[in-house]
């Protein structure tokens, strides 16, 4: 079973690698699959935070911060590569802030706080016109330059951003795998499963939670930075859109919470079904897969949400005094 998973993953990776030449560098399909790959990264980043037991309904905040940060830095004549990294750091900071502020919130209330946080950033982007360009956003963001040491067909334009998105997803997946098997993963799982018990074993939960937020925010923001250099505009309602909060949640829970490859696989599958099969024929229902996937997860896969839901535990003073 495990072997099959890896063979399947290898085949998918090979197909993704060969897609541009096979599709004749078709710009629309490349753009579509690049976006799917970015959603894969976003879903994996969301999953990383969920691995530490923190439920976010506001990943749009981190994605959007990365997008704006990268756009502003790029327009400020930083090289796009540095701009994307700066955007990533901005997203990590923004995520750390909400992680710290909402440290005492759990479950649904943490989810609501992150949702509000994303809305706050959308509001700031709308109103802080001098910096963000207001509701109209920023235009004229330079494209990513082709990499010098590879054949031009593969590194310029859509193909370039395609391979970049793919490489980025693979790197994030590799990091996620590394984290799962490190001290980080151990601490995240302990904080998720039984925060109080973890603290009785000498683990101070707060810094780990903030770290999980910052890491997840960093990866999401890098995806945001990459995205604005692909679409080359940034608007509040585009990059702080609730879709960037809902879709990673749907994809990660549908693909299998806390698993390595599930969220990214679900992201590719759901996004491509929605855009390739439904959008051209029944555009009205092209978001339907996400809604249905979520309903299936909540109602029919109790295991699918199990990791989200903290196990009922006796509160400290209930052990006695019955």
């Amino acid at each position: 079973m495990r072997r099959l998973t890896w063979i399947g993953a290898g085949l998918v990776a090979a197909a993704l690698l060969l897609l541009p030449p096979l599709s004749g560098f078709h710009p629309y399909y490349l753009y579509l699959v690049s976006t799917a790959l970015l959603f894969g990264t976003l879903a994996t980043a969301w999953n990383l935070l969920a691995y530490a037991g923190q439920i976010s309904f506001g990943h749009a905040a981190f994605f959007g911060l990365g997008a704006y940060g990268a756009a502003l830095a790029s327009l400020g004549r930083f090289s796009p590569w540095w701009a994307i990294v700066l955007g990533g750091l901005l997203g990590a900071g923004g995520a750390g802030v909400i992680g710290l502020a909402s440290a005492r919130l759990q479950g649904a209330y943490l989810a609501l706080a992150t949702l509000a946080y994303a809305e706050i950033w959308r509001g700031i982007a709308h109103n802080w016109s001098e910096v963000s360009g207001g509701g109209a956003g920023l235009i004229g963001i330079p494209p990513l330059p082709p990499l010098p040491w590879l054949p031009l067909d593969f590194t310029r334009g859509r193909a370039g951003s395609y391979y970049l998105s793919l490489a980025f997803l693979l790197v994030v997946l590799a990091l996620f795998a590394g984290i799962l098997h490190s001290r980080l993963g151990l601490a995240f799982a302990a904080v998720r499963e039984e925060e109080e018990r973890a603290s009785l074993l000498g683990v101070h939960p707060l810094p780990w939670k903030i770290l999980a937020f910052a890491l997840s925010g960093f990866f999401s923001a890098l995806a945001g930075g990459l995205y604005v250099h692909m679409v080359r505009v940034v608007e509040p309602d585009l990059v702080f859109s609730r879709y960037f909060s809902i879709l990673p949640l749907v994809m990660a829970t549908f693909g299998g919470l806390h698993t390595l490859l599930g969220p990214a696989t679900a992201a590719l599958g759901l996004y491509l079904v929605s855009e390739l099969l439904l959008q051209p024929y029944v555009p009205v229902f092209h978001q339907l897969p996400y809604g249905l996937a979520l309903i299936v997860v909540v109602l029919y896969l109790p295991g699918g949400l199990a990791g989200l839901l903290p196990s009922p535990r006796p509160s400290p003073h209930r052990g006695e005094g019955r």
């Binding site: 799982a189 499963e193 039984e194 018990r197 990791g307």
Partner: peptide, 9 residues
């Protein structure tokens, strides 16, 4: 008294 392990680990 009632064991509280990290259940899914």
């Amino acid at each position: 008294q009632i064991p509280r392990p990290f259940a899914h680990s």
